[in-house]
Design a binder for these strands. Structure first.
Length: 128
RNA sequence: UAAGUUAGCUGGACGGUCGCGGGGCGGUGCAUCAUCGCCUUGAGGAAAGUCCGGGCUCCCAAGGGCAGGACGCUGGAUAACGUCCAGUGAGGGCGACCUCGAGGAUAGUGCCACAGAAAUGUGAACCGCCGUUCCUUGGAGCGGUAAGGGUGCAACGGUGGGGUAAGAGCCCACCAGCGGCACGGUGACGUGCCGGCUAGGUAAACCCCGUCCGGGAGCAAGACUCAUUCGGAGGCGGAGACAGCAAUGUCUCCCCUGGCGGCUCGUCAGGCUGCCUUCGAGUAUGUUGCAUCAGGCGGGCGGUAACGUCCGUCGCAGAGAGAUGACCGUCAACAGUUCGCUGUGACAGAACCCGGCUUAUAGGCUGACUUGCUAG
RNA sequence: GGGGGCGUGGCCUAGAGGCUUAAGGCGCCGGCCUGUCACGCCGGAGAUCGCGGGUUCGAAUCCCGUCGCUCCCG
């Protein structure tokens, strides 16, 4: 079911420094949701970058690890559909700990489309 | 068969597609590095809390004492422990068995509210009991008495008998407690005998005694490497010639800046708020510490056991914003089933490493034992 | 990684083995006052002392374990 054509940016590059997160929070737009809050900011880079923020209020270390891995997997699968030149930060809320993978994926897809970083060439109707 | 006690084990398994961290091999680009392919490997019984004990590393000290802290029945195990094992004693349970911070109250100090006469001191009479004196229905005074009542968590050994005016270890028997002796045991202690008749509780109050502990910091310890930086030393405009093996020195010409000089010229100073070389300190960064060790598994021997020892075998995570995720199928477990199937899967994530303790935990498995009931 | 502090009515504090039935202030409720509200006065309700266990005759207090919050250093 997966397309064999890989996107040119193979590696999932992540934000690491605190000032990078603060820049996205300060400059970019925010799309709030029940499970996650999506922050986005346009850059001049050739690829998209992602940051994940799961605070201690969400749950214990196992819950936080699993949620961050799920969000990372969602971003990896949607890497071809995201426009290049965006820095995105996914902040998990406490309701995200009870959701499964598919509802998280659907929520992220809707929020990314509202933010405007979704590319028009890829057809999201093929996957569901 | 029902209820229960206890000692352990396990913490889903297999496969497919996409994807990730470490290691090894090979290819390509440019050798650090990047990328691709293949192989291999990749969280726990508690990884948790950080409550103890160590290893390891650095600094200070290097002797002795005080102080301080921890521990506290006995013997053993261990690198060490507050842990473990085996015993002793006390308490609880019909029992299997469980629990115990379990030294000292005769070293000293403190406290024991309220109630009660009295709360620890060679001392105590509230109601009673008895004797006696006085008025004399009944009471008052004095004396004796700790057996009875009452208070209290606790009242100066308990029960029974003798004894007495009434009583009292005043006397006797047994019991509890204290001291001594003998025997058994490594020891805690147990058993027996004898003695004088009595000593409150509290040390998770201060304290005393005994044992142990160098102190402090912690892998963000520490070590190496060093951009920037700081400090020391030395040198420095360009070209040419000469001397010299060279470093270097001298001379000539030219260039720049400034002073003197009215100017060309001349003369003097500098080419230095900079750069280069080298040495040292040392931050960011990078490398290391970093996973082969009080190691796991199996077996033999010693020991009741904890554990020790020997042999064989295995190689088993190592990140630096932090690697295990998503989907599907089969089997196993549990629950509900209309017997087609459907649903559920606990607690929870290594960060230098070990030994423990404590806490959380769906379920499943095994062994031993106790008390009932039934049947033989 | 290392260390400290706190938890008491809805909120902020006190209490430090018994004299306490846990005290005070703000808040809440009822009444009085006022034409009404506020202020003031009187009265009242409201506490598993974070949780579990132990020591003691007796625990909010002492000891042990545990949970939560918060702060500091690197």
């Amino acid at each position: 079911m997966q397309s064999k054509k890989r996107s040119p940016a193979k590696l999932l590059e992540t934000l690491r420094r605190n000032w990078e997160f603060q820049q996205v929070f300060r400059v970019g737009k925010s799309i709030p949701g029940r499970e996650i809050v999506l922050y986005g900011m346009r850059t001049r880079r050739k690829h998209a970058r992602f940051g994940f923020n799961v605070s201690k209020k969400v749950g214990c270390a196992v819950v936080r690890n699993r949620l961050r891995r799920r969000l990372r997997e969602i971003c990896r699968l949607f890497l071809g559909e995201i426009r290049t030149g965006w820095d995105l930060v996914l902040v998990a809320r406490s309701d995200a700990a009870e959701r499964d993978f598919w509802s998280l994926r659907q929520a992220f897809q809707q929020q990314a489309q509202r933010l405007g970083c979704w590319s028009e060439q890829a057809q999201p109707a093929g996957k569901t």
